[in-house]
């Protein structure tokens, strides 16, 4: 399992491209394996399920979450220990995954992905014909 983002931007923030003026964070992630799937759990506090995008291309899994900044009416932020922002991270998966059967769910700010392992292709016998 390779973390494609760790070398450059993991843990650090950069500003989202385009017009959004929010930082982009590398989300805290656990990955574990079961007999028939990889389970990825990603911490994305403050992200609504509609703001999540998951893409798998070849073996590269990209996870993105877009935040809707919290701005309560009539209140001003006076003390801040965390910043809101978007989340983005990508991984190269070591196992072949059946991309058509990925399941994703969101609960309490945790995105859980179930990535079923692809069944190995049945071996093919090649008949040799006499020329």
């Amino acid at each position: 399992m390779t973390d494609n983002t760790s070398g450059v931007s993991a843990g650090t923030e950069r500003t989202a491209q385009g017009t959004r003026d929010v930082p982009v964070f590398s989300p805290t992630t656990d990955i574990h394996e079961t007999a028939d799937a990889l389970i990825v759990t990603v911490e994305m506090p403050g992200i609504d399920k509609d703001g999540v995008n998951v893409a798998l291309e070849q073996r590269e899994l990209t996870i993105a979450g877009h935040c809707r900044p919290f701005a309560p009416d009539g209140y001003a932020l006076t003390h801040a220990e965390y910043r809101e922002g978007d989340f983005e991270r990508s991984f190269t998966l070591s196992d072949a995954i059946d991309g058509s059967a990925i399941q994703a769910s969101m609960k309490d700010g945790i995105l859980t992905l179930t990535l079923p392992k692809a069944k190995p292709e049945p071996s093919k016998t090649i008949n040799v014909t006499a020329g």
Binding site: F25, S26, P27, T78, H79, A80, E81, Y82
Partner: peptide, 15 residues
């Protein structure tokens, strides 16, 4: 991610 505190949970206060 970066947080201004090592304590959990990180808090924001609005007035």
């Amino acid at each position: 991610r970066w947080h201004a505190t090592t304590e959990f949970p990180p808090l924001n206060v609005w007035r």
